[in-house]
Write a protein that binds this DNA or RNA. Structure first.
Lengths: 152, 152
DNA sequence: ACATAATTGTACAACCATGAACGAAAATCA
DNA sequence: TGATTTTCGTTCATGGTTGTACAATTATGT
């Protein structure tokens, strides 16, 4: 009794997921190349975009949102800070927390970078209409919820 | 005239893509944790699964399929080879090429690892029916084609 | 109040990934 | 054939990511 008689590639969910993973990997790579013109890396953009959305976010919360470790954030931030793109200020009521803010320059770079990312995504998805894109989003969000619920 | 009056997060394609990227990242992380039990890493599985599908594939072709650099493959393979999971044999008609094969042990580990990956994906996507999964796959493949065509 | 536990950010070592430069082998082409 | 170019794999330096251990600070519980 062999549970692997059917190869994974014959499984519809598996096969379709592979396409998702490839598309994700490709976008990531292409975004990396495109950001060279702004002299920033994808992880830097991820960080700045989140500070843009959530001004004053803590490093902990930022790491949680980006699904990375705190040490990752802790090592990347000084680089961005030295370039004058962000600021770190101590929270006065809880001295453990460092709150993050974009400088004017940082906001400017972030918007330029997001415009590049937006163009890349819109072009890549231009062959799918909005209903299709929305359905993909719904399915992916269900998938994320399912994984969170599983905990594993 | 500011082209960024509308934030990216208000753009439907962008917003939905973020969900794709998050799901992809989560699966990757969870797969990594799950593979600890077999003492292999995700990149190792990617490699072995492709050798499983395409016996005798060259390192070059393997790198191309995985969308990584040749140096990446070249550095990972010796690790897997030392564990007796794969074999590298020189092509006799073209001595530049090293052809890759799984050992029996490698095939066994690969199937176990693929079963873990399959379970993870099937569970995560269990809230979506097959039509939905197929449509996601179609859209992602169109997206990949679009990016390949753009070249950029 | 005081001891214990939990949280926040950092430092460090290990590993993975990348791109450029290189040598060997094969293909091209004159 | 002989010279040039291309392809394949490796090596090396650089930089990204992770997990663990740690110091400082705050929260908890008696």
């Amino acid at each position: 009794m062999n549970e692997n008689q059917v190869l994974p590639w014959d499984n519809p969910r598996f096969k379709n997921w592979i396409a998702v993973a490839r598309a994700s990997q490709l976008i990531h790579q292409k975004l990396g190349r495109a950001l060279v013109s702004l002299d920033i890396k994808v992880p830097h953009l991820d960080i700045m975009a989140n500070i843009y959305r959530f001004e004053g976010i803590s490093q902990q919360d930022l790491a949680h949102k980006l699904l990375v470790g705190r040490s990752n954030i802790s090592m990347l931030l000084p680089q961005i800070e030295k370039r004058g793109l962000i600021e770190r200020r101590k929270d006065e009521t809880d001295k453990r927390i460092l709150r993050l803010y974009l400088t004017d320059k940082g906001r400017e770079v972030t918007l330029k970078a997001l415009a590049i990312e937006l163009e890349l995504i819109e072009h890549s998805l231009s062959t799918s209409n909005l209903d299709e894109c929305n359905q993909v989003g719904r399915i992916m969000n269900r998938m994320i919820d399912q994984m969170d619920a599983w905990g594993k």
